[in-house]
Design a protein around this nucleic acid. Structure first.
Lengths: 163, 163
DNA sequence: AACAACAATTTTAGGCTTGAAGCATTTCGC
DNA sequence: GCGAAATGCTTCAAGCCTAAAATTGTTGTT
């Protein structure tokens, strides 16, 4: 049993240092990229990332979405979306109207100019992202995709069983 | 030249969809985990992630750090750290004193109880992270580590040459 | 119709974050 | 030593974000 101390879990205090380091690296990596994207959006288009993300959701559908839909898709709170939409209506990018069949719901759409502006931003944004991942091979990208997919599933499992 | 249209870059409008999807997945993954960690820190210890992170930095050194050191290590703005430290001094976790050799400098330390509380939180935190990555094999973890390392370098290159 | 349950949204209080402007102190160049 | 530049920190305005409470509207039951 020469491998015992390596392979067998000691009752308490296993070593989870690798997972911790992985999480820290994942966080650093994401923050690095996200910070850069925010900076460029602000410099080039004077827009924030949350606003860009919201417009991206709306650009995918022709007929608008409700606030709840948006908040689910963006995985943020309802109240958050209220404020975001408010500011984007104010700036003329979004159009908001009360549904005729249910007066509780608000239907949000991109305006014509909102959609046009978003498309311009999205095109550049895609190039930024490509340049950020430029040193990775196609295989690296696929591998990362797969491993992050696995991570997502694992995380969801963990959060649901509330271990 | 049968592979030409596949391998050769057309002058404009290459396809960067894979990179974009990778970035979205990276972001989703990180947000999922980060959200869960925030939730648990709040529920279990009534502490926020930024405060936890700040204490983590201070726990690594015996003799305290200056505000600038902290802000560099955490990669956040100076003004941000000012407020964070303020609240943690208020709650008794941190001790703050003006340096004797340079009266501009504030030296921040964990108090005895601050350090004790942090250690308790950190121990649980490590278990949460381990459980979140539980479905990944040791090799998966290593592969992710390596690929994220590569990504970090690539991103830094891209942000520095400001492509 | 009345009433309870539910659903969509807004409001509120508190905290995080940034970039820019401002203040105090130190250091550098002369 | 003196003024200018640099450094460390704080303040400020604006925006983002959340959870929880409040508001408004709909639906199902009796």
């Amino acid at each position: 049993m020469i491998l015992d101390s390596e392979t067998k879990a000691t009752e308490h205090s296993e070593d989870h240092g690798d997972e911790l380091r992985l999480w820290l690296r994942l966080l650093t990596c994401t923050n690095l990229i996200e910070g850069e994207v925010r900076r460029r959006l602000r410099e080039r288009f004077d827009v924030t990332l949350p606003r860009f993300d919201l417009m991206a959701q709306l650009d995918k559908v022709p007929d608008g979405m409700t606030l709840s839909d948006i908040s689910k898709r963006m995985m943020v709170s309802n109240g958050n979306v209220t404020g975001l939409v408010e500011r984007l209506v104010e700036s003329g990018h979004l159009d908001r109207r009360t549904s005729e069949t249910d007066r509780r719901v608000q239907v949000i759409r991109l305006t014509r100019t909102g959609r046009a502006e978003f498309r311009k931003m999205a095109a550049e944004h895609e190039l930024w992202i490509a340049s950020i991942f430029a040193d990775l091979s196609a295989k690296d990208v696929q591998d990362l995709m797969r491993l992050l997919g696995k991570t997502k599933v694992s995380a969801r499992n963990a959060t649901q069983r509330k271990a």
